[in-house]
């Protein structure tokens, strides 16, 4: 029982970071109908910016997270300016955007290699965060609580923004039909900027959180998470924000359990395999809906 709870705690903190990453991925798909293959690169850059704030500038995590949020958000907006906006104007096929964003991702990875080197770097042990508490044999690290807390806070804020604000309504309307949005006076371009900013900002924070959790930051960390993000998005139902939240948590838990009960070598095989089984049962994903009902 203790082991089970321990795995759940570990799975939730890992899964929460997957969820935060995948939400942006699914939003860009749901709102703009794009697969942004460079979403992992903002995640990786967010991790480095957070690291630079903590390690080089000596800032507390409470400042490093917002810094990563803003930087990654802006980096993500640059995708819209450089790649997706011009392609939309030309009414290009969305596969072109997929390839162009892959190129962007590679460029950003190369740039990170040049600046930060190819080796894995670590967050300095941050005083308070290294502590833990034990409840009935289950060890809960302060870091896990902080990571989970930040993830839940961000997801709650995003859900509120989408459901209750004017901008959220605009985003959901563009997801339904850009044309209807324009008829109502909503600028699709500005909505795309907002979507890319939010998606990138969340990915950047997820980068910091995962960098802390695994205590490792490298230029290639974006590639692994991109595949997991894609899995989570499909598992949750393409374009569904609640689906990405639940899917992320689920994938995190599945992974931790397969490491705990099977072998770490089989982690991804079991993770992806189980997702496949779930999709066989529910092909449209957990929160999968018809195209029209997305977002």
């Amino acid at each position: 029982m203790t082991v089970l709870f321990q795995q759940l705690v570990n799975g939730f903190s890992l899964g929460a970071t997957y969820a935060v990453f995948a939400i942006g991925f699914t939003m860009i798909f749901g709102v703009l109908n794009l697969l942004n293959m460079a979403h992992g690169a903002v995640f990786m850059w967010g991790a480095y910016i957070g690291l630079a704030c903590v390690a080089d500038l000596g800032l507390p995590l409470a400042l490093a997270v917002p810094a990563a949020f803003v930087f990654s958000g802006l980096l993500s907006v640059s995708y819209e300016i450089v790649i997706f906006g011009p392609l939309r104007k030309k009414e290009a096929h969305r596969w072109i955007g997929l390839i162009a964003s892959l190129a962007m991702a590679r460029g950003l990875v190369a740039l990170a290699q040049m600046i930060f080197g190819t080796h894995v770097v670590r967050y300095p042990t941050v005083g308070l965060l290294s502590g833990y508490m034990e409840m009935g044999g289950v060890r809960v690290h302060t870091l896990q609580i902080v990571i989970f807390g930040i993830a839940v806070l961000l997801m709650g804020a995003l859900a509120f923004m989408l459901q209750r604000t004017r901008m959220g309504r605009a985003i959901r309307t563009v997801a339904f039909s850009p044309r209807v949005a324009e008829l109502a006076g909503i600028s699709v371009r500005n909505t795309a900027f907002a979507t890319f900013f939010l998606a990138g900002a969340l990915a950047g924070v997820a980068g910091v959180l995962l960098g802390l959790l695994f205590n490792a930051v490298s230029p290639f960390m974006g590639e692994t998470i991109l595949l997991k993000g894609l899995t989570v998005v499909i598992l949750g139902g393409l374009g569904s924000v609640p689906g990405a939240m639940l899917g992320g948590l689920l994938l995190g838990v599945i992974e931790v359990f397969s490491v705990g009960y099977v072998s770490s070598a089989f982690r991804d095989a079991i993770g992806f395999g189980l997702v496949f089984v779930i999709l066989l049962i529910k092909p449209s994903g957990l929160f999968g809906q018809t195209e029209a009902a997305r977002a």
């Binding site: 309504r169 309307t173 039909s177 209807v180 109502a184 006076g185 009902a293």
Partner: peptide, 18 residues
Amino acid sequence: QVVSPLSVEENLFLGAHT
């Protein structure tokens, strides 16, 4: 073209977006 995932009231407020 009513925005089906939005409520009736949200659809109406959408019309007054500007």
